[in-house]
Structure formats: C-alpha cells, structure tokens
Design a protein around this nucleic acid. Structure first.
Length: 920
RNA sequence: GCCGAUGUGGUGAAAUGGUAAACACAGCGGACUUAAAAUCCGCUGGGAGGAAACUCCCUUGCCGGUUCGAGUCCGGCCAUCGGCACCA
C-alpha cells in the first residue's frame, strides 16, 4: 500500500500536531508534593512500565503493548481524579553498546545517546502521556551517583538477628574487628568459584548462565575461582518468599520466585567418621577424624541412612584425600572394584582413587554435568566409615559423588536409598543396602517412595506420621547435640561484579590489601575515558587500562570491576518520584507520597488551614498495601531476576529507613509476547519483524495503539496481523466520519448531520453502556472488550440520521485514553461550532463521564424458554414482570407445550430477565 | 521428571453456572461507480429435511461426574507453550 493513497482520515496531520501541543503545554506534567500546583487532596496512582534498554534496533511492536496499556490506565485514572505518576526512562548501561564500541571504536556514551534520542522520538510519536520531566537514564552521572550511593549503603550494612539490615556502625560500636565486620557486610568480597566467560571477558551471575552458556551471546562459561563482589541476598531469602503474600502478582510469577528461592525445612545432622583400625588399634595417626554435617529435609528417615556422600569440592573431601594418601594404604576387605572409581590405574589405593575421581569431577563443566550423559550417577568410596547417630552400632560407608552439590546445604548428604530417587538410583548401581523406613499408603511400593507416610524400622519413631517423626527426631538431635532443625534455600548470593567498561564503577578503593568505601562527597565516581574497550583477555577488567584513573592515591588503587546491568534497574522507580533531586536519591516527601499516598506537605494552592489538616488519603481506609507502585507492567522475562533484585534492594532501603514500604511493586501484570504474522517469535532471521514506525506511517499512532489492545487479552501470547490493524483503522475512520464529512475535493469539514440535539433513547443506552463497560474493563485491563464495546457504540451512532454532538463528545472522552489524538482532534473540531458542548482544553483534563443506570434499563427484556434445558422459545417480557407472570407466559407458549408433550411440569426454574426452564 | 499456563468457528477472540461464537479479520452476495478502490447494507460453526418461510440434530481438546441447566465447577486423560531441572 503506498503512502500516496488517500487516508481514511488525516491522522498524519493531527497526530504530530497534538503531540506538539501536549508537549508545549506540558499537559502531562505531574506536580510533586511541594510544587505550587500540587493537589494533596487527590489520591495518587503510580503506574510503571519496565523501562527499556535503548538498543540500536529501536522499538519493536512488543514495547508499545505494555506502554499503551499503562497509558490507558494512567489517562483513565487522571480523568478519575488521581494524581498520576507515569514516567519513562532508560536502562542504558549494558553489553551491546560496549561490544559495538569494541567493533567500531565509537564510545558507548555516543551510541547510547543516539539510541536514546531514537527511542524518545519513537515513543513520542505514539502519544504516550509520560511526564518527560522525570525521564531517568541509568548512565547519567546524576543517576548513577545514587546507584553508587545505594551500593555504599549495602557495603556499610549487615543483617542483624532480627533479620533486618542495620548500619555497620552498630557492629563497630560493639567492638567487632575489621575482619569480623567485613564478614557480615551485605556487599562483600568472595573468592568463590564463579562463571567465567572468556568470550565476553567477564564473570556472570548464575542466573545469566543458561545450559552452561552465557545468556547473552551463548558463549561457553567455565567455573574458576576469582575475587568478586557479592551481595548478601540470601539473608533476605525468607522475607523475599513470605512477603510475596501481600502482593497482587500473578500466582505463576509468585510461584516462579518461590521456586527460585527454593525454601526447604529440614535439619543438620552430624556423623562422625572413624579412622580404620589395624588389629583392633587405631591406625596410628595424629589427624583428628572429621565430623560430617549433612543437611536433610527428611530427618525422619535417619534410621534408613545407608551411606554418606560428600561433594567432590567439599573441604572435608580435600581433607580426607590428604589423609587417605598419607595413611591408608589398603582398601577394606572385600570391596568391589565398582566402588573404586572408573580410573582403573588409580584403583590400587583409596587415596589415588579418590584423587582421580575428584579431578575428573571438578573438570566437568556445569554444562557437561547437566547434559544427558552427565546425569548418570558416578562416585567413589573413600574406604572410610561413619557412625549413624541414631544407630551407633551401625557403620555406614562414606562416598564422594558429584550428584551432591557443594553449594547447597552443607555440601554433604545422608543417603536414604529407599526413599530418595537419586540415592535409590545410586544404591542400585553400587549395590548398597536399601532399608525401608517409611510405610507408604496402601497399594504403593515402599522402594523409591518419597512422599509422606509412617515411620517403620525406625526405633522410637515407629508408627509416627512423617511430619511428627520429623519433629520428634529433630528435637532428639537437638537435645543430644547431634544436629538441629534448620531452613535452607536454593538461592545463592548475588555475584555483583563484572569485568566490563560500560557499567557503574564501584565506589571502592583498595589500600594495603583492604577495601574501603569512598566518601559520599566523592560521588558520582565517573568511569575513566578509554579509547580501548577490549577485554584484556584475562580476568583483569578493562578499567585496568586507565592507569591514571586506577591510582586513587600514592598508596591506594580503585576497584576495577563494574556493576552488572541489573544495578540501575533495582531502584529506578524510586528515582521517578523525584528525578531531579541533587541532594538525595529521592526526596523524603516525594517518596512517601508516591509510594504510600500519604502526604504531610500541605497543598500549596489551598491555603486555608482547614483543608490542610484533612487531606484525603487514598490508602487511609483500605488495608495497607506493602507495595508502593500501584501497577507495574512488563514482560515475564524479568519474573525472577530483576523483580527479585529490586525487591532485595528495596527491603534494605526499607530497613535502613530510606523508603516507606516493605515492597516496591504492589500489582504486577505481564504482557504477553507478540509473535510475527507466521505465529513464530519475531526475529530478524525469520524476517517477520514488524516495525512500529511503519505501522504509524500507514495507519497512525492511534491505530497502532488500538490494535495492540484489540488483539486479545493483555497477558496472552498472540500473533500480529496487519489485517487486524486495518480493522481498527477502519473503526477509527468510522468515528471520524461521525463528526466529519468530505467534499468532492477531498476536504474535510464538520458533518452537517452533527447537531446540538439530545440523543434518542437507543443511542443514550448505547452510550451509557459504553461508559459503564469501558470504565469497568479498563480497571480489569480488559482493553480488547472495551474496544469492542466502543465499536458497538460507534456502529449505533453511524446508523443514526442525526448525530447528537453532546453525546459524541461524551463518547470521545471514553475513547480518548485509547486513541488520544483522534479524540482530541474531533473534540477541537466540534468545539469550533459547538463551544458549549466540547471540552475546553484537552480531553485528558476532563472528568471521566458518569453513566446513568436509568439509561441502561429497557422496558422489555427477552426471556428464553427452555424445556429440559433445551432452548425452545423466546419472548419479550416487561422488565418488571414477576416470576409468576413470566412462568405463565412460558407455559402458554405453543412451542413449550409442544415439547412438554402433554407431560406435567416436574419443576420450573425462573430466572427473572433471563430464562424459564421447564422440567418434565 | 517436577511446577505452572493454555486448548472455543477458516483467523484474532467474547461469554457473574443461564440464548456458545459478541466485536473484528477473512470469505460470499448486494448498493454506489463507466470501472476499481473506499464506503454502506446483508449472509457467513457443522449436519439433516424443505421449493421456501422454517424446523430438527450435533458442536467449546478427549472421557466421566455434579446440576433443572456446564465453555465455565469437580475427577481422570491428551496436546501445545513457558519455567525449573541431581537443591537432598
């Protein structure tokens, strides 16, 4: 279709015009508490989009899906008397700009600025009611100054016994040593093994590694120990799970986070290893036999523990290997070769076999371990035995196997083959004993039964159901000092440093091998200017190339790592509340108002003290909500990472008294992915990508907005259809022609059918139904059904000879959140002839129309008559007809009588205004 | 394997336990036009009967249940998509 073709309505003229007017008059500026035009008597509504990474590709049609939804909500809430905060910004640090810099030498700042300019232009062409004065950019020094500031808060905090973050100064006051304090910081340095990606030249968080490859680029990732900054998110694991309860999030997302955090209750149990004896005497060595502490969720099965397993990289594995190599020169009698590992040459001695197995296991990458072949169980017997604490007479073998992970629990397990799938598989392979200790319900095999049942063969636990057995054994272990109840989490601490250039530098310097935070006054710490962004090829970050910058003082050097991209997005919603504040990351009053709705600053415009003392608060009478942002819309891809990290930071800031709510986001909605016309995921390689700019050029911004909402439910995955765009475009054209008509020259003028007359009964009903349904549907985010109702209404008006101008203006108010340009233009056209009927300024300044319930009521309704549940007849019945009257009419129906076949009615169900069902 | 979501016309979809398929797209027919586009009007789930008006039967992935009545509630399957995946 060529752009020469005459347009069905002149959107390409009036859309830019109104965008210009809105911008010039700051129509969507939102005043803050303390501003002259701030009205504290209004409730607040904070509606947030997940801010985009401004990529070089520009917007794709997935972006405007969520953005249109929030725009409609924001405009609707504003018309309903809310102070609406609806901002936009840029998550602009990140790898693509840096890799582009490596390729072309263009500084990431230049690329980022160009991309931001392009995104801004594109977003503005869609007519979103953002308050652009609040725009944030994570790469702006005025922004990342505060990202660094929050990092320092983490660095200078610890979690106390109350489970809350406290300033580190409390520990200093208690006289703790430097080392003890460093050990408790929420931001700490760790030497743990990390995911190193040579191609990207950086380490990655566990979450950024998918199937042993980097999530970005799909490059291989290897494990290697490196000195890294970690954030102690695990200290908040419990609260991150339990606080989900109060949030209006999709259950599936809550589930995803809960699973990710992976809370499980169980117990630690201590097993003592015994050195082998030689002719009844200890085999004569000075090393202490170790105690192996295991974590189990099934302490009730302790009597069934048949062997222990240590992770290959468990410290006790290392200790035992040394001991075996030094002291144990023989296997216990009668050990099968199977138990001695797969390396034949090493089977001669336990020390050799164990050493060979560990080397093999630790060489295996995460990827190899997860692949099919890597999943079959391997392991090696250490030649040593430990005592089961509940059955001291029983010695059980100690194994090393890589199906036990060092990073979870204690890195060691007690194996109960009868009631754990993995242990069962292992025991079968190595012919280890399998003892039943849980009695399953009738009809189930006890072998491999992992659910709850009743304890058997378990001494003092016998006969107890699993839950009670757990309690009893845990109490017993605690009493004897052999173990204790505990809770474990799958969640690991957050690896927070990256070896990249284009990220926030850490506000940290190193001196004499110790780290220290910069003073607040030294922020923001800008990255150095670099010509060469290439990774060094070693774990040394690119910032090391800025030799002057690195040298903080004669004796101190700067931290060379930068923060991950998640950092900036952890708190941007807070910055929106007060985006230009230079004194604080967010002003106290602004944060309090936008996050809680409470306002202690008087409205500047209302000077009478009576009004000041009684501000109406939106949250005052309802149950307090833990989350601050009223509605957060974005993709499911951030279900765990971003949303978990942001919640973590928010809780730290909450504990330290910097924010007012325990949670950031009250209501979360995930928009569904938009697929290409072929039903496949949009991608350049498939050639099915739809560019929103093209759609705007052909059909206009309103048509794009409307189509994105008309496609189907917001949360659903759905394919694009250009024919569908044309459909809503035709609808908009029909609305246009309610008001405008065209002459032979193609010049549009106000339609002569448009008159200042009241709408007739039928049109009034259609209009008020539309007001009602659209209002309700917007609240439910059911935009597709709201639009179809507007279509019904428009069709009714199209069929009318005379178009009642006042009713059409009311309709335009309802349409305006969806198609703001068209609604605004038609209102202005109507205003030229009927100034009294139209909105004075912008439709967004108008109040959402109220519907008249009386207008919805009809004199007669259609009632259907069923016989035995099958539809047989219908009749129009007066609305006020009684049950008895309706029943009489139904029974009088010839068709009803025909199908009753002369039988008497057994039962008659009458639903007034709906139906009559006669059962014979 | 485990957890979750979703299955309705040719297509996107709609339906507080009460007329299944609203609203659109595509298709077909008509009006307007020299013609086309645009626009407007009508038809459009399947099957059977009838010249026709019309009438009947079937239909919400499959099987069962609850109910006067089930797309909707319950139980069991199947398929597709998403997440997790040796977490003891």
């Amino acid at each position: 279709m060529s752009s020469e073709q005459r347009k069905a309505f002149p959107f390409s003229e009036f859309e830019p015009k109104w965008q210009g007017e809105w911008e010039a008059s700051k129509a969507y500026r939102t005043p803050n508490p303390g501003d002259a035009d701030f009205d504290a008597s209004k409730p607040k509504y904070f509606v947030l989009d997940m801010f985009p990474y401004p990529s070089g590709n520009g917007l794709h049609v997935g972006h405007p899906e969520g953005y249109t939804a929030t725009d409609i909500i924001g405009r609707f809430k504003k018309m309903n008397g809310f102070n609406v905060l609806h901002p936009m910004g840029w998550d602009a640090f990140g790898l693509p700009a840096e890799q582009y810099a490596i390729k072309t030498g263009t500084h990431p700042r230049v690329t980022t600025e160009a991309n931001v300019a392009n995104f801004t232009k594109q977003l503005k062409s869609l007519g979103f009611a953002y308050d652009w004065d609040r725009e944030v950019n994570t790469t702006d020094p005025g922004y990342f100054k505060w990202t660094q500031w929050i990092f320092l808060k983490l660095y200078n905090s610890y979690v106390g016994d109350d489970g809350k973050a406290h300033p580190i100064s409390e520990l200093e006051a208690q006289g703790l040593s430097r080392e003890e304090i460093d050990h408790r910081r929420l931001a700490y340095v760790s030497e743990a093994p990390v995911n190193w990606c040579p191609q990207l030249g950086t380490v990655l968080a566990n979450e950024e590694v998918v199937d042993g490859k980097s999530e970005v680029g799909g490059f291989p990732v290897e494990r290697r120990p490196m000195r890294q900054w970690m954030l102690r998110i695990t200290a908040f694991a419990e609260r991150l799970v339990s606080d989900l309860d109060g949030l209006d999030w999709p259950e599936s997302i809550k589930m995803l986070q809960t699973d990710w955090i992976g809370r499980s209750e169980g117990a630690y149990v201590k097993f003592n290893v015994e050195w082998p004896t030689c002719n009844g005497k200890p085999s004569g060595n000075p090393w202490a036999p170790p105690t192996i502490e295991v974590f189990t969720t099934r302490p009730d099965t302790l009597f069934g523990a048949e062997y222990l397993v240590l992770a290959p990289d468990h410290p006790t594995s290392t200790y035992l290997t040394s001991w075996l190599t030094t002291f144990l020169h023989t296997w216990p009698k009668g050990i099968s070769d199977k138990w001695k590992g797969e390396v034949t040459e090493a089977q001669a001695l336990p020390g050799l076999a164990v050493q060979a197995y560990r080397e093999q296991a630790m060489k295996k990458s995460e990827r190899e371990r997860q692949q099919e072949g890597g999943r079959h169980k391997t392991g090696v017997f250490t030649g040593l035995y430990a005592r089961n604490p509940v059955a001291p007479s029983k010695l059980i073998p100690v194994w090393i196997a890589d199906y036990v992970l060092a990073g979870y629990g204690t890195g060691a397990i007690m194996a109960v083959p009868a009631h754990d799938d993995r242990d069962f598989e292992f025991a079968q392979k190595f012919e280890l004993p399998i003892t039943q200790v849980v009695q399953p319900p009738e009809g189930k095999d006890w072998q491999g039964f992992t659910d709850n049942g009743m304890a058997v063969n378990s001494g003092f636990l016998n006969g107890l159901p699993t839950a009670e057995a757990k309690k009893k054994i845990t109490a017993w272990l605690e009493e004897k000092g052999l173990g204790k109840g505990t809770t474990n989490f799958k969640l690991r601490d957050w690896l927070f440093s990256r070896q990249r250039y284009w990220g926030e530098p850490f506000p940290i310097v190193w001196e004499n091998g110790q780290h220290r935070g910069l003073a607040e006054s030294e922020l923001p710490l800008l990255p150095p200017t670099l010509e060469d962004f290439k990774p060094t090829g070693t774990p040394e970050p690119p910032l090391s190339k800025a030799t002057d910058w690195v040298q903080y003082s004669a004796t101190a050097k700067r931290e060379l790592n930068t923060m991950p991209q998640w950092a900036g997005s952890c708190w941007y919603y807070l910055r929106y509340c007060d985006a230009r504040n230079t004194e604080r990351f967010v002003g106290v009053e602004a944060e309090k108002y936008w996050m809680t709705g409470k306002c202690s600053v008087p409205s500047a415009q209302c000077s009478d003290s009576e009004k000041l003392s009684t501000p109406t608060l939106s949250t005052e009478h309802s149950a307090p909500k833990p989350g601050g942002v009223d509605l957060y819309v974005g993709g499911t891809e951030h279900a765990v990472l971003h949303l978990l990290y942001a919640r973590f930071w928010h809780k730290v800031l909450f504990d330290l008294g910097y924010v007012s709510t325990p949670e950031p986001f009250q209501r979360l909605v995930n928009q569904g992915l938009i697929l290409g016309e072929d039903g496949q995921k949009m991608s350049k390689s498939r050639g099915n990508v739809v560019n929103p700019d093209d759609v705007v050029r052909e059909y206009g911004a309103d048509a794009l907005r409307l189509y994105e909402m008309f496609m189907g439910p917001l949360e659903q995955v759905k394919p694009w259809s250009m024919k569908g765009v044309e459909g809503v475009y035709r609808f908009l054209a029909r609305v246009w022609r309610l008001v405008m008509e065209v002459d032979d020259e193609g010049v549009w003028s106000l339609s002569k059918a448009l008159q200042d007359v009241p709408a007739n009964k039928q049109l009034t009903k259609a209009l008020h139904e539309t007001i009602k349904k659209c209002g309700e549907d917007i609240e439910k985010l059911s935009f597709n059904t709201a639009i179809s109702q507007m279509m019904v209404c428009t069709n009714a008006f199209t069929g009318a000879e005379v178009k009642p101008a006042g009713a059409i203006v009311t309709f335009l108010k309802v349409l305006s959140p969806f198609a703001p340009h068209l609604a605004e233009e038609l209102n202005a056209q109507i205003r030229a002839k009927f100034p009294a009927l139209a909105a004075k300024r912008f439709l967004s300044d108008e109040t959402w129309p109220a519907y008249d319930p009386a207008a919805l009521i009809e004199d007669e309704v259609e009632v259907v008559f069923q016989v035995n549940g099958k539809l047989r007849d219908k009749a129009r019945v007066p609305i006020q007809a009684t049950k008895e009257e309706i029943e009489k009419i139904a029974l009088a129906s010839a068709r009803v009588q025909e199908f009753m076949e002369g039988k008497p009615a057994k039962k008659i169900i009458v639903v007034p205004g709906k139906l009559v069902n006669v059962v014979v």
